[in-house]
Design a protein around this nucleic acid. Structure first.
Lengths: 234, 234
DNA sequence: CAGCCAACTGTATAAAATACACTTATGACG
DNA sequence: CGTCATAAGTGTATTTTATACAGTTGGCTG
């Protein structure tokens, strides 16, 4: 967790609860993580996840959303609890249990100014710097969760703009699974799921011919989930 | 969480961290949950999971193991964090975030006297009473996790005695998945995984003919995991 | 109008999941 | 001592799903 210590009296004999956000994005074929350069002691200048103490009257999940909104200006973001980190000595300054949450955001959406103001930076997941405390562990665990979860829940769509192309989606899944997928098989599988709505528009940013845009069919997804359907995406 | 309140001064303006244990067992073809009758106010007489406050100098996972050992007398039990429960009003008495852990134990192992002394009772999962606070939710979430996890990790073995028969194992998986499995296909699949060691003993408790006993091949399992093998059990 | 590039499409093969029915070992009981 | 009852154990055919693989199309560029 990364509280602004100047605002707080930390008491050594008190138990604190914090929440830290692992914020994933996707851009240019790469999975990205939003990290922050600490501007206060201790650990000034080191990279860290963004976090906050949980307030006395505040739900843990609300605290996480508050942090995310403060930083990105975004609301209605996919967010899910990862797990709690509770080693007694995880933070040398005081006793603090941190509940890590991971969020998937659409990079094109977020407010650039806002993040820069907070000293934030998008890192390629393969080029992450060392993070403070146990934050590197958190990211590793979140990545494992993302990989597993992507198999059976269409969370990938949270990382793309509302309208996206099949090649974009494939590139995202390739980044998550860290391996190349066969384009014919990927498309075939996807189409049989019935989760996409084909639009009458093309995206021409990456080819002369252009690729059709699709959007995610939330309604049908909900219906399928209710009827107990079992997904397997790519 | 279920602290012995008489031992504590609870301060309304303090944040507490607790841990609650969802303890699963398996007996007579049914999945079981270990629940406790509260002997102190508030909620005296209602059923509850067992739990404890996390001590200032204690890891969260250590606190959970401490509770489990106090109650069952068992050590070296499969235990894994489920998630943190952090609603601000989840406990009306004071602000407390609880980190739920689920444990799988071998019912024949545990110390009966010890559990009875604590007012414990094994419930069939289908006949659970209402539990205090958000504990019913915890059990539901743990059950969902168990179902999913059982597919790709051989955790089922944690619930059986060291030596077990194939029909016993099948009955366990039927209880977890809540559906009948085909005995021929179950056996076939299992054998291809190479996770079982056949013993030269039979269990005759449930048939005249007797069924061969097996034990779990931990060594080979470790090897397979390291080599990146992907399981799918039943 | 030729060339280039990514988008798009179909089929054959292999692997895995499912469905399904009879034989065997053994103790109980007449 | 033979037959009956019971759960343990076994094999094959079919369907479904995953994988492997190569050529055509649309549309801009020069």
């Amino acid at each position: 967790m990364t509280p602004a210590l100047k605002d707080l009296y930390v008491q050594k004999d008190k138990m604190y609860v914090a929440t830290d956000c692992i914020i994933f994005g996707f851009d240019a074929g790469k999975l990205k993580l939003l990290a922050f350069k600490r501007r206060v002691e201790p650990f000034l200048g080191t990279w860290s996840l963004i976090g906050s103490f949980v307030r006395m009257e505040e739900d843990v999940s609300v605290a996480a959303k508050r942090v995310l909104t403060e930083i990105t200006g975004l609301d209605n973001v996919f967010m899910e609890q990862l797990k709690a980190y509770g080693l007694a000595d995880r933070d040398p300054g005081y006793r603090c249990v941190s509940i890590a949450q991971f969020a998937l955001i659409r990079i094109d959406d977020y407010d650039k100014e806002l993040t820069e103001k907070h000293g934030a930076h998008w890192f390629d997941l393969e080029e992450l710097p060392e993070l403070v405390l146990d934050h590197s562990q958190m990211v590793e665990d979140a990545m494992a969760r993302l990989k597993r979860k992507a198999r059976y829940q269409p969370i990938g769509f949270e990382l793309l703009p509302e309208k996206f192309t099949i090649p974009q989606l494939q590139s995202l899944y390739e980044a998550i699974y860290q391996k190349k997928l066969d384009d014919r098989n990927f498309r075939k599988k996807l189409m049989t799921l019935g989760l996409l709505i084909k639009l009458n528009e093309k995206d021409k940013s990456s080819s002369r011919r252009g690729a059709f845009l699709y959007k995610f069919d939330y309604d049908n997804y909900q219906k399928l989930v209710k009827s107990g359907y079992n997904f397997e995406i790519a």
